[in-house]
Structure formats: structure tokens, C-alpha cells
Amino acid sequence: MKEVSIPCGVDLTQLYRQEVGDYPKFFKMDVLSRLGFLLTERLVGSDENRFQPREDRAVLVFSREGCVANDRNYVATMKDFPSPSLFVYTLPNIVAGEIAIRNKYAGETSAFVLEKYDEKAIFELVRQAFQDPVTQSAVVIWADCPSDTEWDARGWLVNREEL
């Protein structure tokens, strides 16, 4: 099982320029989506036929805080001119959608919120997601961002036979 992480404090824009560079939509994303996007690049960047549309790969994202960092950014715009471009990131599952769009994954995408980081609980939910017979592999993301500058970000690429 492939495992990656992004240490807290890393400059995400610089990381994007070093490791990706060809997906300007990155700059529209909130911190949660940026982390999920970059973790996934590290997980699947070397996949063969990477951008062939596929339904057999799920994207499962987990956190405690959901999208609260971006929620606060949206609230700051509410008094004057509520920002639609911030509002669309005020859902914990948008990161899964961004990963699906980038990689043309038409399989399951799901977002879960847990009371704390618990690898056993996460992988129990991942195993359960494989009850969908179409799902053969899953990008699994734990990206927890209490603010735009603090996070715990880890990712796994899980194949059905590894569970």
C-alpha cells in the first residue's frame, strides 16, 4: 500500500510548482482541496494511462474539521459581498470532487468526518467502501485543517487485494 504525507508548514504553492505545474485550477482551491490534490499527485502521478477515465477507483476523504478553515474565509466575505468562489468550497467533499475531476475518476467519492484521527476506524470504513463491486482501488485521504496554515495531511493508495 502506497503512503504519502505533506508536513505542516510546507509552502503548498511551491510544492505545486515543483511537482505538478500544469493545472492552474489549483490556485482556486481552498487549503483542504490543495492538500488532497497534492497528496493524490504523489500517490498516482506515476500511474500508467493516468488520465484514462475510470469508474473502478474511489476517492475517500476523512478529517475532523471538515472545511472549517474555508468556512471562516467565506464568513469574512458575508457582510460585504458573499463570495461564490469561496462558498463552493464550504463542503467537506469538494476535495474528493477536485481529485475526481483532475484524474477522471467516475467511481465513488465520499467524505467522512470523525471525532479524531484513528487509522483503524478509517480503514474499517475503507474496507466497507469496497463492498461496492465496481471499486477495485481507492485514493484515501486524511486531511485535517483547523486553519489555512495548520494541517495533518496523509494519503494512501489502496488496492482491493491489499485489504
Binding site: 475532523r64 474539521e65 471538515g66 472549517v68 467519492t109 467524505a111 467522512f112 468526518v113 470523525l114 471525532e115
Partner: peptide, 27 residues
């Protein structure tokens, strides 16, 4: 604390649930 985790914990405990709550927040 407006996290869904916090609310879910409070609801589950008030209900008497003894297992860890899971929140599904899929738009």
C-alpha cells in the same frame, strides 16, 4: 466548535450511543 464531529459526538452521547459516531458529509 461547529465541526460536524463535535455535534455528532454530542448527539450520539445524548442518545446513549456507546460506539464512535461517523459523519457522512457528501454534499
Amino acid at each position: 466548535d461547529v465541526s460536524l464531529a463535535y455535534s455528532a459526538g454530542n448527539i450520539a452521547r445524548a442518545l446513549g450511543v456507546s460506539t464512535p459516531p461517523v459523519v457522512v458529509s457528501n454534499a
